[in-house]
Amino acid sequence: MNFILDHYNYWITIILMMAGFYIVISANNLVKKIVGLNVFQVSVFLLYITMGKVSGGTAPIVVDGATQYSNPLPHVLILTAIVVGVATTAVGLALIVRIKGAYGTVEENEFKDQDDAI
């Protein structure tokens, strides 16, 4: 039982990562691929935050009476990664809007066919 509890967070992380990976490689629709990339990204965030947690610790803000704090370093890395993540997602979505304008579709197989026809 203890073995399961000790690794549960890592396993969920990997399930999320694989769900995101599956969406990215199997979906035809580009918007769905972006959602898949974001799911993948959240799984990486979760892995870092899981590693930063200390049992019996509290959030890394100094309070009287607290002796054990969780590790602040992964929090800093992930906080900035989230904001950079949304900025890059916006670039991806802007590319999709332009692809829709140029090809009239956002389904991967359809605009590939158009490319082949040319």
Partner: peptide
Amino acid sequence: DAVDVAFTEASVGAGISTVLMLGTLALT
């Protein structure tokens, strides 16, 4: 215990990302 990260994820992930994706969906 990652309160700062939770704050960012709630405002960025659930807020801005979702709005931008819906904006793209309106076009595609």
